[in-house]
């Protein structure tokens, strides 16, 4: 297996967003073309369907363009993008009754962003370009057994390859919480892996 080299930190998107806020469509186009693959990757891990992921990412970018006047630089572009996309993913999953609130969810007392959701249909297929890879299928099936919160942080860390500081900014939580959440999510993923993949990790 290839050696693991962590990715460098991501680009600063604020200049493009500032230009877009001033009405520069080209700047927003460039921003959208950089955010789109990230969004698709994240949404694919959350909702499990390529088509839905693409639709949700486009919808998210459209909402960003329409609400560009409301963007505040201190908030960052990626956290804003991620917040909108995450809510769209959860809304879609809820509308299709594919998630249920983990533990006791009381909508009157909890901020929806803090709620963790369990998937009702844990069967999660690998992306199309990996459809014939049996080990990829097993990996995605294990990922499908996790809650939305675990899947979210694992997708951001492992698929988008964000650093801890970026994760903290994106999820609006302290870095210590990022480490703890990531640690437990990974432990649960490792527990969910079938024996052949778990053994590969120990080799």
């Amino acid at each position: 297996m290839a050696e693991y080299i962590p990715s460098p930190p991501t680009t600063d998107f604020a200049p493009l967003m500032r230009a877009a806020q001033g009405g520069d469509r080209d700047a927003f186009g460039r921003l959208a073309s950089q955010l789109e693959p990230r969004g698709r990757t994240f949404a694919r891990a959350m909702v499990g369907s390529e088509e839905d992921a693409m639709e949700l990412t486009q919808e998210c970018l459209l909402r960003m363009w329409k609400a560009r006047a409301d963007w505040v630089e201190a908030r960052g572009v990626l956290p804003w993008f991620h917040g909108i996309l995450r809510n769209l993913c959860i809304s879609l999953l809820r509308s299709k009754e594919r998630v249920r609130a983990k533990d006791a969810f009381r909508p009157d007392q909890l901020d929806e962003e803090d709620v963790d959701w369990d998937y009702v249909d844990p069967e999660l297929q690998p992306p199309e370009h990996l459809a014939s890879d049996e080990r990829a299928r097993l990996f995605w099936a294990a990922l499908g057994k996790l809650s939305t919160r675990d899947r979210e942080i694992l997708a951001l860390r492992h698929f988008e390859e964000l650093a801890y500081a970026e994760l903290a900014q994106r999820l609006r939580i302290p870095e210590g919480t990022v480490m703890s959440r990531l640690f437990h999510a990974r432990r649960r993923l490792r527990e969910a892996l079938p024996r052949e993949l778990a053994e590969e990790l120990r080799r």
């Binding site: 297996m1 050696e3 990757t41 990996f139 698929f159 990790l201 080799r203």
Partner: peptide, 28 residues
């Protein structure tokens, strides 16, 4: 040492089986 290696292997697994289609991204 085994735990660090296992964490790295898990990261490589996830990178290899990511929804990102490297060929498509390179083409785009």
């Amino acid at each position: 040492a085994a735990e660090v290696a296992a964490q790295r292997r898990l990261a490589v697994m996830a990178r290899n089986w990511s929804p990102r289609d490297a060929a498509l991204e390179a083409w785009e």
